[in-house]
């Protein structure tokens, strides 16, 4: 497996982690009214969106490399 493929897998897993943490934060907020959990959700929603945008651009360029 090349670095290119490993990177694609890694970024995909990071997006999955972002989705997981975002959902976890919402559930934690509902259960314990923890605003810091909701803050974590916000951070990972923004981070996940940035990763999706990066993946959209970078994966195509990496394929041509």
């Amino acid at each position: 497996m090349s670095l290119r493929i490993f990177h694609v897998i890694f970024i995909t897993l990071c997006i999955a982690l972002s989705v997981y943490v975002a959902i976890w934060g919402v559930r934690e907020f509902i259960a314990s009214k923890s605003w810091s959990a909701l803050g974590l959700t916000a951070v990972f929603v923004v981070g996940g969106a940035a990763l999706v945008a990066y993946a959209g651009k970078a994966f195509r360029k990496l394929r041509d490399l």
């Binding site: 670095l3 290119r4 970024i11 990071c14 981070g47 990066y54 970078a58 360029k61 990496l62």
Partner: peptide, 13 residues
């Protein structure tokens, strides 16, 4: 760490 994975790929590219 996520950012560092991007920089290492950019270095190689």
């Amino acid at each position: 760490l996520i950012a560092s994975s991007v920089t290492v790929v950019l270095a190689w590219a």
